[in-house]
């Protein structure tokens, strides 16, 4: 007797529904997403499922991605701007296995970009969707820990607490000392946490041509910003919002207008600054190499 070994399908994992989640869960998330788009910046509770990775690793983003992803999509996943970190690779591989979708590291080729804490430097287009992984969706959480109370504050659009918080920074330090997770007003109605992206990225959310979806798995909240929607970083007339970046050029591509990571190189205080967006940096390096060759 010969044993025929049937190799598993090259890409997808047997025994799972397309994109891992069952259809009832997807419908529930999809309904939440549609209401989220209709009420820009408003947090909508949803029944987050346990995912095969721990909270804090992007379970909210993964569930949103799983609910929107189709077989023709091309997925890019970044973790702090990088395509090659453990989290980004794991999530890309997860969707390759459970949905068989194509993945890419190039922002321009992606139809869905799932991100942890960065917005790609390359401007997103109308035919792209960006999914943010959100650890804490409630912008008022550190000021008012009671959910019932923050819900009421959102209903009343009473955001004085946050203004006082920013004012206290100015009074104590002379400037607003929030470098990431800098609160924004969406469509002049809802105060929203942009997820812990650097404040440098906040202006990219304003009137972005792409749809922006946010998923918080542990906190079980979904929210969204439709395309071309006004997103303003909170500030004061005499202390306008300023996006901050390290005042250096990228050590690899020389860029002076991208967000930089500081890399410690030795024990003697040596350090260098490189682009946080690895795809953008690699493209610039390739471009300048091509120019040099010509």
């Amino acid at each position: 007797m010969t044993i025929t070994v049937v190799p598993p399908a090259p890409s997808t994992l047997e025994g799972y529904n397309f994109a891992y989640l069952d259809e009832a869960t997807k419908r529930m998330i999809r309904r939440a997403l549609l209401k989220a788009v209709a009420i820009p910046g408003h947090q909508i509770p949803f029944g987050a499922r346990e995912m095969p990775l721990p909270y804090g690793w992007g379970t909210g983003g993964i569930q949103v991605t799983a609910s929107i992803l189709g077989p023709t999509d091309t997925l890019k996943v970044i973790d702090q701007g990088a395509d090659d970190t453990t989290n980004a690779i794991s999530i890309r591989r997860f969707f390759t296995r459970v949905a068989g979708v194509a993945t890419t590291e190039h922002t321009a080729e992606a139809t869905v970009v799932q991100t942890r804490h960065r917005i790609p430097e390359r401007t997103l287009r109308e035919d792209q969707i960006i999914v943010y992984q959100v650890p804490q969706p409630e912008p008022l959480f550190r000021l008012e820990p009671r959910r019932m109370e923050t819900k009421r504050l959102h209903a009343l659009a009473d955001y004085g607490l946050m203004h006082v918080r920013l004012y206290e920074d100015i009074a104590r330090l002379g400037h607003i000392a929030k470098a990431y997770d800098y609160p924004v007003m969406v469509n002049r109605r809802y105060l929203m946490s942009p997820s812990p992206i650097p404040a440098f990225d906040n202006p990219k959310m304003h009137r972005m041509p792409a749809l922006q979806l946010f998923g918080a798995g542990r906190e079980k909240r979904i929210y969204a910003i439709p395309p071309y929607t006004e997103v303003r970083s909170l500030d004061f007339e005499d202390h306008p919002f300023r996006p901050i970046r390290a005042p250096h050029a990228c050590a690899l591509c020389g860029s002076r207008d991208t967000y930089l990571d500081e890399v410690i190189t030795d024990d003697a205080g040596g350090r260098l600054f490189v682009c946080s967006d690895t795809d953008f940096c690699a493209e610039r390096q390739a471009d300048s190499a091509k120019e040099a060759a010509e």
Partner: peptide, 14 residues
């Protein structure tokens, strides 16, 4: 269902 939902999501977003 995914294709139909994406059509509605796109319609709702734009």
């Amino acid at each position: 269902a995914q294709a139909s939902f994406r059509a509605v999501l796109e319609a709702m977003s734009r």
